[in-house]
């Protein structure tokens, strides 16, 4: 079972709540995915516009909430957003994401580390969304983050695990759970991440924009489970053929 900070999860598929056509579809998809941790964003209420209530169905479904700090462009804004989220949702769990760049939404490593240090101090369970940077992930772990969430590819691109080599290093080195976030476009990507030894994946766009989000959510759940089982079963790798060269151990016979 996956354990992050004080919580245990039987499902290793985390989901986002954005980009679904309707709140009903969102809530049905999350249920189909079996996800026990879902992300949410914080937004200032406009006086006129009446937002759909997405919180009630999530709470009813019994999932844990993981508010994010999207929209924050630096550490200061992220810390403010974190405190808003804690106040609004009554959870100290936080997906820390800081992107100063509105086009590709690339996470800012320097601001993220600075914010993580402060937020850990303030008692948050911090899960930072970062580039697949092994050193940064170690620094965040040292800072007390409960997990790290490196990206597979630019957010929303569905391109799969473009950062695979670096994800492998992060997974090898981490003492906290590694959640592959962003870029996972198909269940096969999610399965691959799990086969590589990721502790969980976070999927949003690929589910939300599928023709049938509920069916896709189910497919992701199966892929994550299959990938995890394969990882535990111990994958065989491609067979390596020894190159012919002079024997290195023959000297043992001449002792």
């Amino acid at each position: 079972m996956l354990k992050i900070a004080d919580k245990s999860f039987t499902s290793r598929l985390f989901t986002g709540t954005g980009k679904f056509a309707t709140p009903e579809l969102m809530s049905q998809s999350i249920q189909a995915s079996g996800s026990q941790l879902v992300t949410m964003a914080m937004k200032r209420v406009d006086a006129q516009d009446q937002q759909d209530d997405i919180l009630a169905p999530l709470i009813k479904a019994g999932v844990n909430l993981l508010p994010n700090t999207s929209g924050a462009r630096n550490a200061e804004e992220a810390i403010f957003a974190a405190n808003l989220a804690r106040e609004a949702l009554g959870t100290n769990w936080l997906k820390l994401e800081i992107h100063p760049d509105p086009k590709y939404l690339m996470p800012d490593p320097i601001e993220t580390l600075a914010a993580a240090e402060k937020l850990v101090e303030q008692g948050f369970v911090v899960l930072p969304y970062v580039h697949a940077d092994p050193v940064l992930c170690k620094r965040l772990e040292d800072a007390g983050c409960a997990a790290v969430m490196p990206l597979g590819a630019p957010i929303g691109t569905n391109k799969g695990l473009r950062s695979r080599d670096f994800l492998e290093i992060i997974i090898e080195q981490a003492n906290v759970p590694v959640v592959v976030d962003a870029g996972i476009g198909a269940p096969s990507d999610a399965a691959l991440a799990m086969e590589l030894g990721a502790d969980a994946v976070l999927v949003n766009t690929a589910m939300a924009v599928a023709k049938d989000p509920v069916a896709m959510a189910k497919a992701f759940a199966q892929a994550v489970e299959a990938g995890r089982s394969a990882y535990l079963a111990g994958l065989g790798a491609e067979l390596r053929h020894a190159e012919a060269s002079s024997p290195l151990t023959a000297f043992l016979d001449t002792l």
């Binding site: 492998e168 090898e172 111990g234 065989g236 790798a237 067979l239 390596r240």
Partner: peptide, 12 residues
């Protein structure tokens, strides 16, 4: 043989 075929070896 499985160990020898892998790129990253674990304790097993």
């Amino acid at each position: 043989e499985r160990a020898l075929a892998k790129d990253k070896l674990d304790l097993d």
